[in-house]
Amino acid sequence: MPESAPKPAPGLPLPLPALMAAAWLVPGLGHLLLGRRSRAAVFAAVIVVAFVVGALLQGELIFPQSGDPLSYLAFIAGLGNGALFFVARFLGFGQGVVTSPSYEFGNTFLLTAGMMNLLLVLDTHDIAVGKKDW
């Protein structure tokens, strides 16, 4: 049976790139703009809690360092947090205290929050183009 072509969701609130940018900048905003209110609230809560716990555990929002290829991946994951990344850096959070016993845990929470938000951007895209109808 041939796969049916994806149907774009009618009446997108924003052009697709702007919608995806919004979904990246504010966790849950993409789903909210597409009318998925309850899922948006859950996603926002999960990501914000993970991010705040990570920052409180003295994790680090990692920047790329030459000679350390993994730092590039960690940077992308951290940047996935969108506005949270910039706000935290501006407020002085996410500097990372390597000597803290919770440093690695903090990193894990921060990186996971960013990667979850990147998955939300992809999910927003799928809903917007009609690949996912819920």
Partner: peptide, 19 residues
């Protein structure tokens, strides 16, 4: 550490269940 691990697992499980 165990509590933090459980909290992390909880957040991940909620996220993927809703996704």
């Amino acid at each position: 550490h165990f509590t933090l691990m459980v909290l992390h697992a909880l957040l991940i499980a909620v996220f993927f269940a809703f996704l």
